[in-house]
Amino acid sequence: MVKKFFEWLKKPMGLIAVGIAFLALFSGFAYWLNTTQQSPDQPIQFPHKTHVAFGIQCLYCHPGASKGPAAGLPSQAKCWACHNQIAKTQSSALLAPLKDAVLAGESLEWVPVAIVPDFVQFNHRPHIAAGRNCEECHGDMSQVNVAENPQVMNMGWCLNCHIEAAGEDQEKLIKLSDCGTCHY
């Protein structure tokens, strides 16, 4: 029985079957790989592009970045402060989740995109204080709609910038390349 099956595999029909099976596995893997690279679903397809074009600063909605560890994701109250004065909010289907959330008194569950593992203790404040701009890590938000992560945020990427920032200053280099600066 098994011998017969292997003989069939060598025939044209068998070869085509093998080819189809291989293609199915390969495309399945490619699809899975693709899903790992997608930005997560957000409650609202928030267009960063539009808001940046209106001249709204990053720190208006993410004010924590200049004060502490987390930049913060805005609550619907912050959105509503402007949007309740905009007529389109009432009619637009895309803005319906915001309207519903405000009327129901529920919060918008934004999904963080730029994340680091639990064993990394990242603090926004010193980076902003050192003169880094938001777009250096998060990409140019005037070009994207729904937030996505423009780069792999791994340790090599962090350290490259840290070593560059330290320059010739040995004391700063020790501080910026110390394990305990980020991992504790």
Binding site: F119, I174, D178, C179, G180, T181, H183
Partner: peptide
């Protein structure tokens, strides 16, 4: 487990 040059502490790097 390494010695922190900056803080002079014994660090435990969990990762």
């Amino acid at each position: 487990t390494v010695h922190s040059q900056a803080e002079q502490l014994n660090l435990q790097v969990y990762n």
